[in-house]
Amino acid sequence: MARLNINGKFFNLTVDGDTPLLWAIREQAGLTGTKYGCGVAQCGACSVHINGEVQRSCAVAVKDVKPTDKIITIEGLSPSGTHPVQKAWLALEVAQCGYCQTGQIMAAAALLKKKPKPTDADIDDAMTNICRCGTYQRIRAGIKLAADGGVASKAKG
């Protein structure tokens, strides 16, 4: 049994303590926007925010998450889907197959929270998620667009 705060809502989940958070989110909480890619914290498809920090949820056991820890998944990043990163991703058509993009968006959103104007080196360091479609160039452009005041300011100016 685990009590988790996901996207501001409490879930009482019937799950073993060693279950990775990823699978509790996907299978018990039913939020499938967080993806399974490798299970060994390599690909980043399972990225979520825990207390504002981006974490690979496949490598976090449910027993290590406290009910007071605030977990945010892609579904909770912005209720209307209009986080500046999401808007930039839409404007630049970043996604191809899209499978890794929820994780990429979570990683990018966490980066921008820490570094509102990231350098290329900051982006290289923070964005270690794998995209097999190879959307890296547009991801970088998307982060810069979001950092630069986002889609709205670009449209004006």
């Binding site: 499938t32 926007g33 993806k35 892609i74 058509e93 899209g98 993009q101």
Partner: peptide, 20 residues
């Protein structure tokens, strides 16, 4: 613009791994 982008950005795109 692609016809299938929005769901991919908000976690709503259903791949067969997500099927229930």
């Amino acid at each position: 613009k692609r016809l299938d982008t929005v769901d991919k950005l908000v976690g709503k795109q259903i791949y067969s791994i997500d099927f229930k």
